[in-house]
Amino acid sequence: MTLKIVITVIIGIISGYFLLPQNILNYADYIIDFGLMLLLFFVGIDIGLNKSVFSRIKAKGIRILLVPFAIISGSILGSAIAGIILKLPFNEAGAIGAGLGWYSLSSILIASYSNELSALAFISNVIRELIAITTIPLVAKKIGFIEAIAPAGATAMDTSLPIISKSTDSEVALIAFITGAVCTFAVPILVPFILNL
């Protein structure tokens, strides 16, 4: 699956760069929205077919919120350590990590602070999403299903969710959605907070 995903994304980037006309962009967002809705609908059917999912999630209860908590703290610590290597101060590096893969919003939130940092936030969160869609099947196979949610961050509720759902099971897909939703709400709070530390 990972190979298929990598090849597809690369073919997409190459055809976008070399072949396709700019005006396709006008439709791209609609196509993505529609495709995403369809996929989320399928994820829903998968969950509905496995009725035991809810009781198993209930058994875990509030502890499930530890997953987004771990992703958020891991992301901020990870980016802070990368910041030491790249000689970025903690608040700047940490704010990029706190973007949790939501590249559009995190770069907007940082734009008023510095254009340069905003661009870095954008690209590194785009790369985070690319890493997520390519490594989720691998992490699911080699490390574990719950861990496969981690690369996705905020995108666990939308663009990465179909991949998580395909690589794991309905229970983890549902945990992923909850995790993605919590992360999504955390981004606009955490990015400005860390930036102002």
């Binding site: 995903i5 994304v9 997409g12 055809s15 976008g16 396709l20 791209a28 993505i32 996929l39």
Partner: peptide, 8 residues
Amino acid sequence: LLFIMGVK
């Protein structure tokens, strides 16, 4: 979907 994201 991933193809379109790549195109974008």
